[in-house]
Amino acid sequence: MRLNGRDYDRTGLARLAGDTGAAGGVRAVVLDDGAERGIRALEFRTGAGLSFDVLVDRAMDLGTAEFRGNGFGWRSATGFRHPGLHEYRDDDGLSMMRSFSGLLLTAGLDHTLFSAEVDASQYRYPPRETVWNGLHGRVGNIPARLHGYGERWSDDGECVLWAEGEVRQAAIFGEHLRLTRRIEADVGGTEIRLIDTVRNAGFDPTPHMYLYHVNIGWPFLDEGARCEFPFERTTWQSDSVAEQGVSNIEMPAPQKGFIEQVYEHELKPDAAGKVRPRLVNERLGVFFELEFDTAQFPAFFQWLHLREGAYAIGFEPSTHHVQGEAAARENGSMTFLEPGEERRYETAFRVGEL
């Protein structure tokens, strides 16, 4: 692996340091104050200047994230609230807004987007004919069972930091879905790799919707920062776009009373089916890039939340379009996983210098 302009193999690094942690590593900690108290976290740190936290008790989502001292994972006023404080039906289905912070919030596993009450007859339980789902579903506030974490040397000589765990979303007379999540980062690199598998571990056909709410904040997001997308066309936008007229390409400073602007874009994939939307900050000389497979995530949303005190931009690859679950059921595009069926999602988060 290459660090600070020099190449190292496993033996060469061992000659210099008795612990790989001198170059980079993963450390298990427990957050211990305020609403975060009790959350297990894994601190990843690479020798190329990338650091990020994996929130084990928050579906192994990504919290704080920095590159060479500059933050890019959004930090909201809610902090990383312990899931034990979460009330799913609070705020008329908007309870996620009381625990919404960090680089990645996972939405699903059976519902994404806005609240919906839908048919649940597949579970064959007469007292529960329908199921009610809040904004972006339940999974983001379910603790994971941690399988392990650490480091391994790959065949090509790279030291890989990793963590893996399982999140179970299950109910009697309801869904039984399991998310197995693996997170990797090279000690010599500035890329986070996310490998997710969602499996129907139950015995009834079960709805499946999946979305990554990837949130970039200050200082990567700042006045003059620019979005770079391989646009084909914009297929939907919120009413606030026309009302406010704020560009979704050139980012302004925080706005007083800003109403979120949301877009669904059709992006042009490369020959391998991949797209790489970016946020570029030329003043800092840095970029953030998300890479995903359009076969796995056929829809993509851009979220602008440029209000004072909650300044963020979101990239959102999704399995379903912005109209949500009720519309997907009506038009036949809703995904149902058969017993034992699974879906795999491979995504990369990259930062670097221009």
Rank of each mutant, 00 (worst) to 15 (best):
V214P: 02
P252I: 08
A348L: 08
Y311P: 14
R75D: 05
F100Y: 15
P252Y: 14
H265V: 02
D53R: 10
F44W: 06
D293Q: 04
E308Q: 10
L42M: 14
A225Q: 12
L161I: 02
P127L: 04
R145D: 07
E164F: 01
E282L: 11
T78N: 00
M334H: 09
R10S: 06
E330A: 08
N4H: 11
E346P: 10
R81W: 03
D293K: 00
T294C: 00
Y212H: 00
V246K: 06
G174Q: 09
S154K: 01
A48N: 05
A299M: 06
F100Q: 02
W132M: 01
G224Q: 12
T20D: 10
Y345R: 05
L306Q: 04
W303R: 01
G273W: 09
S99N: 10
G245E: 04
A23W: 14
W74Y: 13
T294H: 02
F336H: 09
R6Q: 14
G38K: 14
R152P: 01
D92R: 03
T294L: 00
L50Y: 14
G79P: 06
G5E: 06
Q261E: 14
G202Q: 08
N281M: 07
R233L: 06
H176Q: 07
P83T: 07
G21V: 12
V351S: 13
R10N: 01
G324L: 10
A225H: 08
G150Y: 12
V280K: 05
G5C: 08
T197L: 03
P219A: 15
L105Y: 05
I195K: 01
A272F: 12
Q296E: 07
A107P: 01
N215P: 15
H176N: 15
P269N: 02
Y123R: 03
S95C: 07
R6M: 14
Y88P: 06
F292P: 05
G245D: 08
P339C: 14
E289Y: 04
V54H: 08
G352I: 03
P339A: 12
G24D: 01
F44H: 05
S121I: 05
